[in-house]
Write a protein that binds this DNA or RNA. Structure first.
Lengths: 210, 210
DNA sequence: GTGCATAAGTAGACTGAGTGCAATATACGC
DNA sequence: GCGTATATTGCACTCAGTCTACTTATGCAC
């Protein structure tokens, strides 16, 4: 299964990675807006036109790396063991992500990851693009809740929106802490505590504090 | 106070409105992506360059109309009467918005409003731009909660994110119902019920349903 | 009213993202 | 090997947004 398809497929995959790698390296170095597509194409040794065959927009050169995680929450809910509550499953998954230093939780201090996340966070266009991922993740989670948690229409959407909002907030907070120089291990206890607090607010409501 | 400043100010304001009106009319008619800035400038009888003096980007021609509402939730929290809980104030404000058919709640069936909201909702770039407003609203609300509700750092951000997420979900649901042809009055009871459900989930948590 | 400083508006050339098309090169199935 | 599908390319084009230099209108002091 490692090399499904023939040479063609594998070569395409390598080209795709080469383009994206070259792009991100340049963007991190000089800023997203200060590097033209043409320069990326030159660095990756492909034509401008080919670059656009792989990535429909400049932003996609960066954000495609997050595409897999778009529906992660929905998958967790759909794949949870029988009888397990969705919220509990999501909580466990997020806490496990922190433990594993999953970049998606923001709690990862590998320099390349830090640089990439900072790039995305501090570039207007890129940040806006990420919000669309968030939106899609919300949609997917909403559908998952409707399909597997016996919850109906207005409630599913509302719950999904709340859950995704909390997870993103937690992730961004972690990113900011790491970007400020804290190591992942040093930030871990606080991050865990915040995550538990976030999921507690989700489960028990804001009534207690507001 | 109606005409602060002189002729200059008022003329600028009229020009600004003329440009925006022309733009939105064209966009609604033919689609955001199918109308060039040049055509908008011609319709508004100004030069292309002047248009950009008033609106920094094409998207701003449309979304500037929502700019005032960006920090609305934060203002409601800051301006609430002594002793009133933030969440209760926001709930009352939203329900009142539904009663007043405030466009921001999505429950408004004036044709121009429907068309404008549909335009924003169905145009990729415009929708993405609106998500930035959402983000900023979240920030502002978070700060308001920290400043006036005696709630500290991770919690304020988490609560704000949840609240804004719920309000947006409610508004979008209403927009979709209206766009499907329901009148505002016909949708009002359901919209109210959903809003109450949304704020109940916020206050009491998802623990009961998930 | 006249004149001057200032701000608004215009013209035209430029950069950079993204697209359409037609031509060329390359890997695959047989 | 050979024909075919597909990847790649070059070129010309549209459109958003910026820069610079120039013109026109406005407000204000007198």
């Amino acid at each position: 299964m490692d090399q499904r398809g023939g040479l063609r497929e594998r070569k395409k995959e390598r080209t795709r990675a080469a383009i994206s790698d070259a792009a991100i390296a340049l963007f991190v170095e000089e800023g997203f807006d200060d590097v033209s597509i043409t320069r990326v194409a030159e660095a990756a040794e492909v034509s401008r036109r080919t670059l656009f065959a792989y990535f429909p927009t400049k932003e996609d050169l960066v954000v495609h790396r997050f595409a897999d995680h778009e529906t992660e929450s929905a998958r967790v809910v759909r794949g949870r063991p029988e009888g397990r509550a969705p919220l509990a499953a999501l909580r466990a998954h997020f806490l496990d992500g922190l433990r594993r230093r999953d970049p998606i939780t923001g709690l990862n201090d590998v320099p390349e990851i830090i640089a990439l996340l900072r790039l995305v966070r501090t570039t207007r266009g890129l940040a806006a693009r990420m919000l669309r991922f968030k939106q899609n993740g919300e949609q997917a989670l909403s559908a998952a809740l409707r399909d597997t948690a016996g919850v109906t229409d207005p409630t599913a959407g509302l719950a999904a929106a709340q859950i995704i909002a909390v997870q993103w907030t937690l992730a961004i907070d972690n990113q900011v802490a790491i970007a400020a120089g804290t190591t992942a291990s040093a930030a871990y206890p606080t991050a865990t505590k915040s995550a538990k607090q976030g999921f507690a607010l989700l489960a028990d409501g804001l009534g207690g504090v507001l």
